[in-house]
Design a protein around this nucleic acid. Sequence first.
DNA 1: TTCAATATTAAGAAATTGTGAAGTCATTAG
DNA 2: CTAATGACTTCACAATTTCTTAATATTGAA
Lengths: 225, 225
Amino acid sequence: MSKGGKILLADDEPDILEIVSYNLKGEGYDVICAKNGNEAIALAKLHLPPMIILDIMMPEKSGIDVCKILRLQQQFKDTVIVFLTALSDENTEIHGLETGADDYITKPISPKVLISKVNALFRRVTKEDTSILELGDLTINREKYNISYKNIPITLARKEFELLSLLASKPGKVFLRNEILEKVWGTEVIVGDRTIDVHVRKIRQKIGVDCISTVKGVGYKFEML
Amino acid sequence: MSKGGKILLADDEPDILEIVSYNLKGEGYDVICAKNGNEAIALAKLHLPPMIILDIMMPEKSGIDVCKILRLQQQFKDTVIVFLTALSDENTEIHGLETGADDYITKPISPKVLISKVNALFRRVTKEDTSILELGDLTINREKYNISYKNIPITLARKEFELLSLLASKPGKVFLRNEILEKVWGTEVIVGDRTIDVHVRKIRQKIGVDCISTVKGVGYKFEML
DNA sequence: TTCAATATTAAGAAATTGTGAAGTCATTAG
DNA sequence: CTAATGACTTCACAATTTCTTAATATTGAA
């Protein structure tokens, strides 16, 4: 499942840039790299990423300086800013958080910790309250991960749920097969042509009412009849 | 099923007043109705309800005005204020939140969403019973760090307790494995894939009833069956 | 009618979770 | 100080469910 979030990463050490960006890309993030503080500020203004990871020790401008400068601007009010800091320097860590950072990651960087933190922070900003969808007799509860038709609970497997959830998020809209693959399966996973059909069939079968209609040659759409 | 909470509801449309108050009363709330802004302020001062639902477009004083006025007074510092707003006007929504509202509900009003939000907000205010959770025959005492099933005390280890406590804090909600790791173990600690399962098994074993259900590929949820 | 697109089916691949046993670590009792 | 205990984690593999594929039938738009 593609997360599709942009992350601006700034560090003067090419190795760090390389390893961190590799890991984040593997998680589906869009990574923009900067080699120093000034470049970071310029790219931040250009891309307005929801998350910025800054090394503290950088030429031109330190991560702390960059953070201070960005925080002064309204458009970076809600941006998540994370510092990269050497393990030894605890004072800097504290200093960083006081400056307006949301978290910090200590070097040497453990890919697992990095990913875990980034995911956690990202989830915090992307929390949508679209948890309950009501569509006629059909109720989809994203939080409870279940659906019910005429108040009778129906169990869907993960892919089925995500597929239905996607289609139902915009009733009437036709989702192209590509679009569905990208959002439910992600860009990296390749599956055969018939996979979507099979899932659609299972959903139709389980719900018992045809709320998904086929638009031949185009895609599928959710439609309560 | 009386929750015993008072809610002040202000709207100039009798139909809305009717339908919202009907639904809230059905949930056990005490509803006080006001037909305009001034009446809302007067009734708020009289009853001091823990929650106030305000339509934005009202004669005499708009919901936003009412909110501003109330927020200036110490006694409404912790009152939960929710706006009713027409779906179209997104700017107003934002404006509302900036004015000091806690949430907003868009028209047309879906009873389920309404109730769900009101319950959630009410729960947030009524934080007192955070320490003792009662879920059917299961009682979780967060303060004493122990639980009992059908009045028989059961001893859980710390991680087990925290895990159960987390899941039970939102019955029905599916907690992703990531979410669980983050909240019980923290972002820094990395544990293997099977760790959560093992703890879940121990909890199931000790309680004897399967109150934790697996949502394959997603996570776990608490559910008294 | 034609034919590419979609539906259907069943089977087996793949992924995820359950389980028992064993190992590590810290704390406590003797 | 040492052994014993219990909490926590890991591992290997079993059990289960979910997902995908491939083969065939059916559909519907041009």
